[in-house]
């Protein structure tokens, strides 16, 4: 578990984005509990924004408006279809600790779209052609 931000710095009903190694983590406080998910929208891979949570204690992607639950990462409204990955989080000595596991390690560069000859994965395409 990595220490992140002081619990007291988090307003109830708000979230912050924190970097742990290679991982961008969204830390949300709902009441007196903290939750951690990936801070990268699963739709357009846009970084989610810190600030007050949207009505219903949801995280709203700034770009296309996808709504996620910071509790379990689930999608409440499109256009995203894949849930945010969640991470274990707890408060230790007044500091929010998050375990991002292997996601914190520097990963081999994913094939960039600008790599000559690179192609999208079938998974990202969503379905095979008929």
């Amino acid at each position: 578990m990595e220490p992140t931000v002081p619990f007291a710095s988090l307003e109830p009903g708000s979230c912050v984005v924190h970097q742990i190694g290679a991982a961008k983590v969204l830390i949300a406080r709902i009441g007196d509990t903290v939750h951690a998910t990936s801070a990268i929208c699963t739709h357009a891979r846009v970084e989610l924004a810190a600030g007050p949570l949207a009505p219903g204690c949801l995280v709203e992607c700034p770009m296309h408006g996808a709504l996620f639950s910071p509790v379990d990462g689930s999608v409440h409204e499109g256009p995203a279809v894949t849930a945010l990955k969640t991470y274990p989080a707890r408060v230790v000595d007044g500091v929010v600790h998050v375990d991002v596991g292997e996601d914190g390690a520097a990963r081999p560069a994913t094939p960039s779209p600008s790599t000559p000859g690179a192609r999208p994965s079938l998974a990202s395409w969503g379905r095979p052609a008929r």
Partner: peptide, 14 residues
């Protein structure tokens, strides 16, 4: 609105 979103390429403003 929660954000002012450009519907052309997705730039979004607070």
């Amino acid at each position: 609105v929660s954000y002012m979103r450009c519907v052309y390429h997705g730039w979004s403003y607070s």
